[in-house]
Amino acid sequence: MTQRFDSRVRPAPGLDPDDDSVLEINVETVRRWLVEFLRQEIAVQRGFSSIVIGLSGGVDSALSAALCAEALEPESVHCFMLPYRSSDPRSLDDAHEVAEALGTPRRVIDIAPAVDGYLEKESGPGAHRTGNVAARVRMAILYDQAAGLGALPVGTSNKSERLLGYFTWHGDDAPAVNPLGDLFKTQVWALGRAMGLPLSVIDKPPTADLIPGQTDENDLGVTYRSADLILFHLLDGRSPAELVDAGFPEGDMRAVTARLDATHWKRRLPTQAMLSQTAIGESYLRPVDY
């Protein structure tokens, strides 16, 4: 066992933009940890024996589904593919490959009629609004399917996209339980490889798949590898100036800090006007599992 006196006060890692060892995880430790988390949070705490999950064809949802299949039984993991008409057909193929490999039940529901049924009465909503509507329709469907199946919706958001605000508020962040929320994207890739996910979902460029040719890294203006390293050091108490002095690219730093600083609200519940001395979440504090 590693002998280190106090794991809560970590020795400051060296600031080296070429050293991503700070992001290393022991994949077997994390795998067991997250499987136990899912068993406890789904079955023991909430009393569910099955879950629903949206499979996008990307690595996050594939990994979440794989962990759930190990925590429960594959037949208890109900996978839904929810393509819109702008979705890349290869995403659906990849999602099928994941469900096939995991042995989970799956269903395809075309969300275009629901999304377009609303948007066709709006003038020029554009890609951003369309993407947000699609994300929220997907989540509405997952919650409804969960109600029909008596199952719990499980989320797929990773720490990188949560910190960068690269998600739809009350859309893809909405499920009650999320195993990946404290894993950076590069750590998701590492765990996905270790769990034997199809290489087609690990090796392809991550994409929100709202516009043909779209990739996360183009949208963000920074690679996940660089963003994850910067985010790691910022959350560890380093300042942007320290990182730039140490050689981290200034453009990457600006891209990360602009998103991080502008999206704290997306990582919180809605703001409530406080009037009393018993405001919920301010003075009246009870944990989620109480």
């Binding site: 066992m1 794991s7 809560r8 430790t29």
Partner: peptide, 13 residues
Amino acid sequence: GARSPDGPENLAT
């Protein structure tokens, strides 16, 4: 702490 093969690192502490 998830870097150790022996489990969560706080147990090493």
